[in-house]
């Protein structure tokens, strides 16, 4: 294989540290609001209608 320059992070890789990410899944408001954006490389999923104690937000 040859080294390619098209891969790697677009923008600042430190942006990957979402402020509410650590522990933010599975029922947090942060997870619930992610339904307004893309998640898991996927189109938005509108399904939970609010935070829950067991929801992982838009990914499942």
């Amino acid at each position: 294989m040859t080294t390619q320059l098209s891969g790697g992070f677009i923008g600042d890789l430190n942006d990957a540290f979402a402020p509410a990410a650590a522990g933010g899944c599975c029922g947090s408001t942060a997870a619930a609001t992610e339904t307004a954006t893309t998640c898991c490389g996927n189109a938005p999923a509108d399904a939970q209608d609010g935070p829950s104690d067991s929801s992982t937000g838009c990914c499942g």
């Binding site: 080294t3 790697g8 990957a16 979402a18 990410a21 899944c25 997870a31 893309t38 998640c39 937000g57």
Partner: peptide
């Protein structure tokens, strides 16, 4: 991971991943 992306040609960007990774991070 960034370096691996460059080597394999996989573009990456910051994005929400509300999945099992958060349990490990937590």
């Amino acid at each position: 991971l960034d370096q691996a992306g460059r080597l394999t040609g996989a573009p990456l960007r910051a994005g929400a991943m509300a999945s099992d990774n958060r349990r490990y991070a937590a």
